[in-house]
């Protein structure tokens, strides 16, 4: 069946079963592969996107449940040519090893900074409680988010 999604400011049509997890529609129908499968159970955060301003794990929410809502994926955050301050900070801090968790963390961080432009260290840690990193880049990620927040406050 045809479902209409609002993704990254565009209206997109997806031919998929209503029960299809949003993750697969994003990756396989819309080609937005920056959102990644890690567990399918909403436990690791690799598939985090922003829906109506809130971070949501796209692996355990159906396309039918998000029809008409505003979905933002990592692809809309910025590009290599025009980086978002968060992405710039991740590069400056070299805040990745394998990088598989990065998209989800960036989206969780954006959702935080959108409502809390001056987060404390504890705010940032708590905002990432649903995101796992196995390589151990935690310190770099936390520093990157803090410095991006500072840059965004400066404007």
């Amino acid at each position: 069946m045809a479902l209409t999604l609002q993704v990254n400011g565009q209206t997109r049509e997806v031919q998929a079963d209503a029960e299809t997890p949003l993750l697969y529609a994003l990756r396989n129908d819309l080609g937005l592969v920056g959102t990644r499968y890690g567990c399918g159970l909403g436990q690791c955060g690799a598939c985090t996107v922003i829906i109506d301003g809130k971070p949501v794990q796209s692996c355990d929410i159906t396309v039918a449940a998000v029809a008409g809502k505003k979905i933002i994926t990592v692809e809309a955050l910025g590009t290599v040519q025009a980086l978002h301050p968060l992405q710039r900070a991740f590069i400056a801090e070299q805040a990745a090893q394998c990088g598989y968790c990065a998209s989800g963390i960036l989206m969780a961080a954006k959702a935080l900074l959108d409502v809390n432009p001056d987060p404390s260290d504890a705010d940032i840690r708590n905002a990432l409680d649903g995101n796992l990193c196995r390589c151990g880049t935690h310190g770099r990620v936390l520093r990157a988010i803090k410095s991006a927040a500072a840059e965004m406050r400066r404007g």
Binding site: G78, Q87, A96, A102
Partner: peptide, 10 residues
């Protein structure tokens, strides 16, 4: 490889 990985590229 990090720029591609933080911008959601394949």
């Amino acid at each position: 490889d990090i720029p591609g990985k933080v911008t959601g590229q394949p």
